[in-house]
Design a binder for these strands. Structure first.
Lengths: 228, 228
DNA sequence: GTTTGTCGGCGACTTTTGTCGGATTGTGGT
DNA sequence: ACCACAATCCGACAAAAGTCGCCGACAAAC
């Protein structure tokens, strides 16, 4: 269970986002008054694919995944979202059914900025609309990269890239929720294959796999493998 | 070589697009005056991945593909574009380097709406910005679908889907540029695999493959295969 | 009409990815 | 400390996708 932050914390949080930096104090206050606090348990669904969405979500605590799922249960993670990040622009603002499903990976607390007030902001404030366009452009760029990865690169290469970009100080920390299954789903494959790939990289001496983190031993060689 | 249409044809063309429907006559005229006519030969590149782009492109004649390419030469088609369609919102309006490359598949004639005037419209006209947001949302939705397809469905399934959605009156016409190689690149695989997949579908009697078109014989069975 | 290049077709083979059953090891709850 | 569950690990196997070499058919160019 995640405790509800104070109104002040929300206001500070809003102000750190480029999205809302340009708004005057009055508008921000109205916005803050309209947002709803919501919490979810591990495994709970924030929204389903196909629903038209309630509004923009602003993460406060916890992590979640946005996924596409097959009837057989296999899934592809589009992105993980953590504290401070915002999502669901499509569902909230483009008047389109949401293309994917969001699931909590651990206890999540977030703010829901209702659709209606967002639509209003979008229509009235050119700068807000511009930020939104930037944000969507970012999504497109990310997805284009994902498509290219899935289509053109082998699993080991994708894993190597993820390790390189995801590691801070050559260490990729894996919280409880970040299992090999999630890693696999993120990279578009299955856990067994990830396990093999990890062992392969470990055997060639470029990484060291431990229980809750992966250490990058040889960045250069890893980058070579990633390039494939 | 594609002949340059008249100014009048351009104006008519602009007006059929939801994008520009809300503009007053004066603005449309200014817009039309600023656009540049450009032609490309088969195989010519309209823009490269990584470039920051010149503006929005409005197709008049011909077909092109937007692709990601590996050093080894394999490519993934993100989308084909034909007459009446607009592209390059990212490069033109989000101030981001373009994430992909555009290549002409046959002689192409198109209008280039310069970046600057688009940026101006975007900042001044809320409705224009809204259309842009809709357009980008469409791109995101399309890409999310592509990701899910590549990751979660086998080649035959993807091919079956393409045949179902691409066929008019149960016939998918294949112009000269629409070779098995392009089909493969569109579906994220290689020509040989497409050839096998086509033969497999033909052997099970659901389609008939001829030189310049593919006929759907059994829509229901094809839909079943597509569902896999 | 011949030539030349591209496209399509096909079988054999390799590599990569996915699947299955089961052993093993942590971890949280009691 | 014990139990139950989830996560990991592993070898063997199956299926899907990719590669290669070659041949034949068509189409534009000369």
């Amino acid at each position: 269970m995640v405790n509800r932050p104070t109104e002040t914390q929300l206001l500070e949080n809003l102000h750190t986002l480029p999205f809302f930096q340009d708004l005057d104090l009055g508008t921000t206050a109205v916005l803050a008054a309209q947002t709803r606090w919501q919490t979810y348990q591990t495994g709970e669904v924030i929204f389903w694919e196909g629903e038209s969405a309630a509004g923009l979500y602003l993460m406060h605590a916890g992590w979640l995944k946005v996924v596409k799922t097959t009837p057989s249960g296999r899934e592809q993670v589009l992105r993980f979202f953590g504290p401070g990040e915002m999502f669901n622009e499509i569902g909230a603002l483009a008047n389109q059914p949401n293309p994917a499903t969001a699931v909590a990976l651990e206890p999540v607390g977030l703010w829901l900025l209702p659709r209606q007030i967002m639509v209003q902001l979008m229509a009235e404030r050119p700068l807000f609309a511009q930020h939104l366009i930037q944000q969507l452009a970012g999504r497109v760029i990310h997805l284009v990269g994902l498509v290219a990865d899935l289509s053109l690169r082998p699993v080991v290469g994708r894993l190597a890239s993820l390790l390189l970009t995801g590691a801070t100080d050559d260490i990729l920390h894996r919280p409880r929720w970040y299992t090999q299954a999630e890693l696999a789903s993120r990279l578009g494959t299955v856990p067994d294959v990830i396990q093999r790939a990890l062992r392969q990289l470990e055997d060639s001496g470029v990484i060291a796999v431990e229980r809750h983190h992966i250490r990058v031993l040889d960045r250069e060689k890893l980058a070579e493998i990633a390039a494939q």
